[in-house]
């Protein structure tokens, strides 16, 4: 800290004293408020760990958490599979492919997930005779399948845009270099372009996973007992507000853990790009 100036060999002047400026007072007051509410939250939850509410409902919360994980995992995987053809069609030179893909992406990104879920779950009832004729009614009658179906279609639209953006982001020179080496187009795509594109897409994919976890709470509205659904059921039976507080803590822990782990993964995978 007290490095001398090489020309005059004078020590660096001391930094000015930190005064209690308005911003500093405000910051400390706000932090004090956060600390007080955090401590009282921990105290409140701690004093309720052995309460009848927790005794009765914590296995339900675990079940709900697993259902949430299932919904998110399955929809993300199905969406990822579906996003590849959509992204390819979207980038196609032929308008017969690119326009429907654009319409698909626009529809699913422009309307609320809740409306899409309702459209599929309740809307399927309109086509009951037709669906029974082809034997699909059993699929659409089940709320779980409807949620998976709606969420997969929704996340496929978002993932297709992520994928397309990432592939377009890879410079033309990479295609040309591979072509100059005589590598065929499909091999170029999978071995040269895609690895670089996925590197860029890591962060948006992480955001999409978090959006999906948060969005999956919507499933509780159509009678799925995921984490949110179990919370609502526990509240409607006990009228105990801690039902929602436990759920908030659980969701925050899930999302924050995932975000931090994903940051670590990203830092590890992109370490060759650090300067």
């Amino acid at each position: 800290m007290t490095a001398a100036n090489p020309e005059t060999s004078l020590p660096r002047p001391p930094s000015p004293p930190r005064t209690w400026s308005n911003t500093r007072i405000l910051g400390h007051v706000l932090m004090a408020l956060w600390i007080i509410s955090g401590v009282s939250l921990v105290f409140y939850l701690g004093s309720n760990v052995a309460s009848p509410f927790v005794q009765k409902y914590w296995p339900k919360y675990i079940e709900g958490f697993l259902v949430t994980l299932q919904i998110v995992g399955v929809s993300l995987l199905l969406g990822a599979l579906l996003s590849v053809p959509i992204a390819m069609a979207r980038g196609s030179r032929w308008k017969i492919f690119s326009w429907p893909a654009y319409g698909y992406v626009y529809f699913f990104r422009g309307t609320p997930l809740l409306a899409q879920t309702f459209l599929i779950y309740y809307g399927a009832g309109t086509f009951r005779p037709e669906l029974e004729a082809v034997g699909l009614w059993g699929f659409f009658r089940d709320a779980w399948f409807c949620v998976i179906f709606a969420f997969s279609l929704n996340t496929a639209a978002y993932q297709a845009e992520i994928l397309r953006g990432a592939v377009l982001n890879v410079s033309r020179g990479q295609w040309e270099g591979a072509a100059a080496l005589g590598i065929s187009k499909p091999v170029t795509f999978f071995k040269v372009i895609l690895p670089q594109a996925l590197m860029v897409a890591l962060r948006p994919y992480g955001n999409e996973i978090i959006l999906m976890i948060k969005g999956s709470a919507i499933a509780s509205i159509i009678t799925i007992y995921d984490l949110m659904g179990e919370t609502r059921r526990a509240y409607s039976r006990s009228y105990d507000f801690q039902a929602y507080i436990w759920a908030a803590v659980a969701y925050l822990l899930i999302v924050e853990t995932l975000r931090r782990v994903w940051d670590k993964i990203e830092a590890r995978l992109t370490r060759h790009l650090k300067r």
């Binding site: 911003t23 500093r24 400390h28 948060k214 969005g215 999956s216 709470a217 949110m228 969701y251 925050l252």
Partner: peptide
Amino acid sequence: NSSEPSLKLAANIYTTIFRGLPELLTLFL
């Protein structure tokens, strides 16, 4: 954006909470 670390931390806690909670849960809370 301020240079005061305590103010920065307080604001970051706020965003962490409301970006981490599902919107539906925030609504019920």
